[in-house]
Amino acid sequence: MIVVTEQPRTGRRPGRPDTRETILAVARAKFAAAGFDKTSVRAIATQAGVDSALVHHYFGTKRELFVAAIALPTDPSKVLDRVAAADLEELGATLLGAVLAVWDSENGESVIAAFRGMISGGDTTLISTFLMQIVLKDIADRVDEPQGSAPLRVNLVASQMAGLLVTRHILELEPLASMPTERIIASVAPTLQRYLTGDLD
């Protein structure tokens, strides 16, 4: 009698029910450690033990994978398209209006919850990666005047936007928490515009 024993499988594992969550966990850790630009889908797939094609199957692009990793309910590129099309002189107001539109939308609570979770968990590297490499990277390329000033400019913008997010939606300090969007834009956008294109001396 011949007994056939099942040989252990080798190679990358196929998609299993827990594979998606494994990919997300690996992606979250790698994005936090190395940032968006220096993290490749191939490296994420290798550590997760799957093929790169499976990562793309589940999540699409690397940007979409990052969005899923930090649990945002919408792809920020859809919001940032209008910012990319804005005139340089209107960049501050357009950026602020686009971000406020997300915070105050039907997905706003999920967005705030994602950031609140990262803050409370001490995972601030993902927040900085999101702000600097997703939201503000393309803007930095447009405001590097004088040359070399872009990093400071976008850091100042990030500080203003992060402070507004925390004050309005996490601490919920009044009157800012209930202030109409138009009034916030009128009050804050000039400061953002100065950070982006004004004299910083």
Rank of each mutant, 00 (worst) to 15 (best):
A113C: 13
L152S: 05
V166G: 02
D51F: 14
D104V: 13
R20V: 14
P175G: 14
I185L: 15
T124N: 01
E6S: 00
S187I: 12
T197C: 12
V67C: 04
I70W: 05
A29R: 15
A69R: 02
L131H: 00
E21K: 14
T74A: 07
T61A: 08
K78W: 08
Y58E: 06
K38Y: 04
A45K: 04
L131N: 00
S110P: 00
T61Y: 08
A43R: 01
V135R: 00
S40F: 10
E109Y: 10
Q147A: 03
L173I: 12
L200I: 04
V55W: 06
A150Q: 08
G49K: 11
R13D: 07
D81L: 07
G15F: 11
K78G: 11
G122C: 05
F115A: 03
E174K: 11
A48N: 05
R9I: 07
I44V: 15
S40T: 15
W103H: 12
A29V: 12
A113K: 06
P175S: 14
D141T: 05
R20Y: 09
P14F: 15
R116Y: 08
I112S: 05
K62T: 04
I112K: 02
S110R: 11
A48C: 08
S52F: 05
V111G: 02
R9D: 01
D51S: 13
A98F: 08
M1R: 04
M132L: 12
I134Y: 02
A27V: 06
A84D: 09
G163D: 10
S110Y: 01
S110Q: 07
D141H: 03
P76F: 01
R183Y: 14
D141R: 09
V188K: 07
N107P: 01
A71R: 15
A69M: 07
L54N: 00
K62W: 03
T125Q: 13
V26K: 03
A113E: 15
P175E: 15
E182K: 11
V26S: 04
D104T: 15
A150F: 09
A189S: 13
R28D: 03
A189D: 10
M118L: 14
V188A: 10
A71G: 06
T167L: 05
T5F: 04
T129P: 02
L192T: 06
S128K: 08
A150C: 10
P190F: 11
G35A: 10
D144A: 00
M161C: 06
P17N: 09
D144M: 01
S105Q: 13
P151S: 07
S149P: 09
M118C: 01
Q147T: 05
Q160A: 06
V102L: 08
T61W: 07
L72T: 04
L152K: 01
P17Q: 08
V111W: 02
G163R: 06
G49W: 08
G163T: 08
A25C: 09
S40W: 06
E172C: 06
R12F: 13
A158P: 04
N107M: 02
P151M: 07
M132N: 09
S159P: 03
G117V: 07
P17G: 10
A34Q: 09
A189C: 11
L24N: 09
L176D: 12
P180M: 10
G121M: 07
I127A: 03
G15W: 14
N155M: 13
A150Y: 07
